[in-house]
Design a protein around this nucleic acid. Structure first.
Lengths: 211, 211
DNA sequence: CCTGAATCTGAATCATCAGTCAAACCCGGT
DNA sequence: ACCGGGTTTGACTGATGATTCAGATTCAGG
């Protein structure tokens, strides 16, 4: 069964190239990413990259959403382990604060988001993808709020989807600051503010009940 | 006095090129901006652009901060006309919501901000400039809060600078959404949310007193 | 009118990449 | 051992676009 074996390899190569592309984009920025760089990361020749992807643009588009997907799934898996909504909210904030956790993959994720935003402004195909990714991000916040209300942890209040939009925007905005100028806003400060504003908007006690 | 006359012209040209560059960046995006485009906007030859600026990079850097400055000053002038802090806050939100006011210059401003963020991630020179611009933006919010408290319009509460950071981040985050996918978040929605969250965090009545 | 410096032009130079392609290579099946 | 298709290479092509430069042009001052 050559077919199966070869196809398996092909799939791995695809993924390998996507990961390499995502890493190069994080390092050098979308605009400075060359096919040559991606090839070097993979240890292959430039020609091979275009053997697997029809064009550079197409590859970059796929790499951006691929990486975002990967991060999102890791986050969802992580959150599912926690039991209370309060814990899940705090963990979401931790995971979203660039540089707070030693696991610095988070830094990469935000760098990629900024690239997505900039390119989506002019690339309708990416804009469509970005909207899906965005909605998913806001939903995961709204979901925490809903589950907290269902369990009686959080009081009833404003529409959960709306809170998802608001808190999501707050986190996005703060993350940009942290990402850019450490000097003005440290990761720990960002976390504190997210929890403070979160508790005001959602209505839970600023200090954890189980502290 | 040839000197004076010529210098005056030189200064105009400088500015003319910066404005043209800013407009091209908004239209085509930083990455797609060519010297040729800027020259065409000005109705001059490409060579002249590099007669006035030592390099394309340098020109783009200056254009970004020049345009941001222009918008900021226009906004500050606009806000100064209003008397109550409540009015100033609402006007700030109006001015910051892409596409809310017919004056669509605001759209441009946000598009430029995203370009600034992306480039500042890798360009320390721009990062330094961006930090200054950012601080100014957050300060103008904090200033409104302070003046409202001084006049007794707003109740005392959390540190005004901190509110500046939080509300600034919220506006940034929402503006990105609005800028990207109208379908999910309309300008009017963004304004409503900013006012709602603003009133909760600052502590003023959701509805204007003079309504 | 002349002159010289500042301004401006546009063609030429030079580097950089995306994308192509013919040939080489690898490997499973026969 | 050999065949043939899926992989891989790396040199090549073409386009693009920043930057340079050798003049043309303009104009204030004499």
């Amino acid at each position: 069964m050559a077919r199966a074996t070869r196809q398996r390899q092909t799939k791995d190569r695809h993924q390998e190239i996507l990961e390499a592309a995502a890493r190069v984009i994080t390092d050098r920025g979308l605009a400075e990413t060359r096919i040559q760089d991606i090839a070097e990361r993979c240890g292959v020749s430039p020609g091979l990259i275009l053997y697997y992807f029809e064009s550079k643009d197409r590859l970059l588009l796929e790499a951006l959403t691929y990486a975002n997907d990967k991060y999102y799934l890791a986050q969802a898996r992580d959150l599912r382990r926690l039991t209370t909504a309060r814990e899940r909210f705090e963990r979401l904030v931790d995971l979203s604060t660039p540089g707070l956790l030693p696991d610095f993959e988070r830094l990469e994720e935000w760098a990629l988001w900024v690239e997505i935003w900039v390119r989506a402004l002019r690339d309708p195909a990416l804009a469509k993808e970005a909207e899906v990714l965005d909605r998913r991000w806001r939903q995961s916040i709204a979901e925490i709020v809903r589950s907290g209300r269902d369990s009686g942890e959080f009081p009833p209040g404003d529409d959960a989807d709306e809170l998802g939009v608001q808190i999501g925007a707050l986190i996005d905005g703060l993350a940009i600051q942290v990402l850019m100028n450490d000097s003005q806003l440290a990761p720990a400060e960002m976390k504190r503010m997210c929890m403070a504003v979160g508790s005001r908007l959602i209505g839970f006690a600023p200090e954890p009940a189980t502290a």
